[in-house]
Amino acid sequence: MTNQFVTLPSKIRKNLNLSASKIYVIKGEVRVLKNVKVTARNGVRILLVNGVFKSSRLKRSALIFDQGSRLSAKKMHLMAANELLKPVKLADNGGIWFLGNYANASKDGLHLKTNRKNPLSHFSAQLITTNYLGRADSYISPKSGNLIGIGDDIDGFSVLGVGPTEWSIKSIKCNHSADDGIDFANSHVQIMNLEILNPIEDCINASSSRIEIHRSLKLDASKTKNIDRDLFDLETIDGASYIELHPGCSVKLKGVFGDQLVLSSPEMPRPNTRTDNEREYFFSGKIKRAALIYSINED
C-alpha cells in the first residue's frame, strides 16, 4: 500500500530501513540509539507532529540521532504536520538532531560528552530537506487565535559535537525554521550545498565550530519587522567559529550580515557588522578565491 503511515517508536534499537512508499510519523521524541543504522531510500518523507509531548525532554516531536548512530540516506524530506497528519506551514516541533563523538557540546537541555568507548557516529545523505521545523518562543494558536508563550525556542536542524570523519551529508535545504535554520555546536563538517530560506531568526548559528561550504551557499533572511535576525551568528564559547567558502563556490546572500564578524574575501563586498546593525547585505556570484567568515572572541 502506498502512502501508508508508520509511527516510529520512541527508541530505535535495531537497524531500520525506511521505504519511500510509506510516510513516517514522529509523535514525541524518537532517538536512534548507538550502533543502530537507519537507511532511508530515495524520497523518504517524515512528519513531525506539532504540539506538546510531555514525555519528550524537548516537550515536542524530535528526531535525534544519538552519539554512535548512523544514517545512510539519499534524498530525505522532513516536515511539520498537524494531528491529522497533514503537512502544515507552522513550526512547533523539536526538529532534527545529529550527535557526534568529536567534541563535548550542549544546547536546549541536551548534553553530549565524548566517549572513546563508543563508536563514532556516521551520517551520510545526498540531500536532507526540512520544512517548518523547530519551535518559536511564541506562536498563534490555530484553534483559538491566541498568542501562546513557550519560553525557549529550538532550531530546525541541530548538529552537536560532530567531526569531519562522522559527517557526509552533502546537501541541506532548510525552509521556514522556527528559530535558526541550522545550528552547529562544537562541530567541524564539510557540506557541498547549503540553502536556508526564511528562518524566523538567524540562518546559520555556529558555536565554536568550523563549517566548510564547497559548491553553493544560499541564505535568504530578507528584512522583516523582526530585529536581531542575521545571516550568520557566530559564537565563541569554547573557541573560534569559522565558515569557509571554497574557491568556485556559488554564493547568494540576502539579509543582515551579523554582529562583530570578520569577512575575509577579495571579491565579496565588505559588510556592516557593527552591533545592532540592521542594514541588509546583498551578494550573488561565484567566487574565484576562497572566502572566510569568522569570529575569534566575539559572541
Score class of each variant (00 low, 15 high):
Asn104Trp: 05
Pro119Cys: 02
Ile172Trp: 07
Ser177Phe: 00
Gly151Met: 07
Ile182His: 11
Ala178Lys: 06
Gly134Thr: 07
Leu127Cys: 01
Asp108Ile: 12
His176Gln: 11
Leu110His: 05
His111Met: 04
Lys107Leu: 05
Asn104Ser: 14
Ile154Arg: 01
Asp153Arg: 06
Arg116Gln: 09
Phe184Asp: 05
Ile150Cys: 01
Gly156Glu: 00
Ile154Glu: 02
Gly163Lys: 07
Ser158Asp: 02
Ser171Val: 00
Thr114Glu: 03
Gln190Met: 08
Gly161Val: 11
Leu112Asn: 12
Leu147Asp: 01
Ser144Glu: 07
Ser144Pro: 04
Asn175Thr: 03
Thr129Trp: 06
Asn186Val: 11
Ile172Ser: 04
Ile182Leu: 05
Ser158Val: 15
Asn193Pro: 00
Ile140Asp: 02
Met192Arg: 13
Leu197Asn: 15
His188Met: 11
Ala178Ser: 12
Thr114Pro: 00
Asn131Ser: 15
Leu112Lys: 06
Leu147Ser: 13
Ser121Trp: 08
Asp137Pro: 09
Ile148Glu: 10
Leu112Pro: 08
Cys174Arg: 12
Lys113Asn: 09
Pro164Gly: 08
Pro119Val: 14
Leu112Glu: 03
Ile154Leu: 12
Leu194Cys: 09
Ser168Glu: 14
Trp167Arg: 02
Asn175His: 04
His122Trp: 06
Asn118Tyr: 13
Asn131Lys: 14
Val159Glu: 03
Ile182Ser: 05
Asp180Gly: 14
Gly151Tyr: 09
Glu195Ile: 02
Ser187Ala: 12
Leu133His: 02
Phe123Gln: 06
Leu147Glu: 11
Asp152Trp: 01
Phe157Ala: 03
Ser187Asp: 06
Glu166Cys: 08
Thr129Asn: 13
Ser121Ala: 14
Glu195His: 12
Gly156Asp: 02
Phe123Pro: 06
Ser144His: 03
Phe157Leu: 13
Arg135Trp: 04
His188Tyr: 06
Ile169Ser: 03
Leu160Glu: 00
Ala105Gly: 14
Leu110Gly: 00
Gly181Thr: 04
Glu166Pro: 05
Gly156Ser: 09
His122Gly: 02
Tyr132Glu: 03
Trp167Cys: 08
Asn115His: 05
Phe157Gly: 04
Ile154Trp: 01
Met192Ile: 00
Ala105Arg: 07
Gly181Lys: 02
Tyr132Met: 05
Pro164Phe: 09
Ala125Gln: 08
Ser138Ile: 00
Leu127Asp: 00
Leu120Met: 10
Gly181Ser: 03
Lys170Gln: 15
Asn146Trp: 01
Asn131Glu: 14
Gly109Tyr: 10
Cys174His: 02
Ala178Pro: 06
Leu112Gly: 02
Thr130Phe: 10
Gly145Cys: 12
Phe184His: 04
Ile150Met: 09
Gly145His: 05
Thr130Cys: 09
Ala136Ser: 15
Ser168Ala: 15
Thr129Leu: 09
Gln190Leu: 10
Asn175Tyr: 00
Pro142Ala: 08
Asn193Lys: 14
